[in-house]
């Protein structure tokens, strides 16, 4: 994701980014064990809604896809599918060390090692698993990035679609499962 240094957004885009930054809806998809720290972040103690963030039921409605921890190949297929259903601008946040380099599952046959090979990650939150404070901090950073126009992973994905698709196919074999019922 190479950023061009100067801010060449039009005034309308700047206003749009202001709205996007202050109303970030996340996709409710618990892909891994980091999801256990999401309820405390959402609920009364840390209260994510202060930042304008809230869970959304379907990928169409959501702005940010949270990858909460390790991704098995079976999940990654659904995650890619979900990501492609989301409407741009869309953002991806990787949780925990497993999304960075495989973490404790570096030699597992079922989990991937690097999330940014398959999806354009805008922000990583380190930790195994990240504490709610770290998650809140990461979200504040994401909001800041959106406001400044730095979170452009979705544009990068559009521009380098072939590269991402090639990586996905290399690792997964097939991205979309035709018959999930196995019949």
């Amino acid at each position: 994701m190479v950023l061009d240094e100067k801010d060449n957004r039009s005034p309308w885009e700047k206003i749009g980014d202001y709205f996007s930054a202050n109303s970030v809806w996340m996709k409710w998809y618990c892909t891994g064990c980091g999801a256990i720290e999401m309820p405390p972040t959402m609920t009364s103690r840390f209260d994510m809604e202060r930042l304008g963030m809230g869970p959304m039921a379907t990928p169409r409605q959501a702005d940010v896809l949270l990858i909460t921890g390790y991704l098995s190949t079976k999940t990654l297929r659904r995650v890619i599918y979900s990501y492609e259903q989301m409407n741009s601008p869309r953002y991806v946040v990787g949780f925990g060390s497993c999304t960075v380099n495989g973490g404790i599952y570096y030699d597992s046959y079922a989990t991937i090692n690097r999330l940014d090979m398959y999806l354009p990650v805008d922000l990583y939150i380190a930790g195994c698993m990240p504490r709610p404070e770290a998650i809140m901090n990461g979200f504040a950073k994401l909001i800041d990035m959106i406001k400044k126009g730095e979170a452009r992973g979705w544009r990068h994905y559009q521009e380098n679609y072939e590269w991402y698709k090639k990586n996905q196919l290399d690792s997964l074999g097939e991205v979309i499962i035709k018959d999930e019922f196995h019949e």
């Binding site: 892909t31 891994g32 098995s72 079976k74 599952y105 989990t111 019922f181």
Partner: peptide, 26 residues
């Protein structure tokens, strides 16, 4: 991260099948 696939008739479940494995890490 778990899935239940089902065949429904209106609101009633006719057949359901669990689909585990989304969290399989070996």
């Amino acid at each position: 991260n778990y899935s239940v696939h089902m065949y429904v008739d209106g609101d009633i479940i006719n057949k359901s099948r669990p689909t585990p494995g989304f969290l399989h890490r070996g």
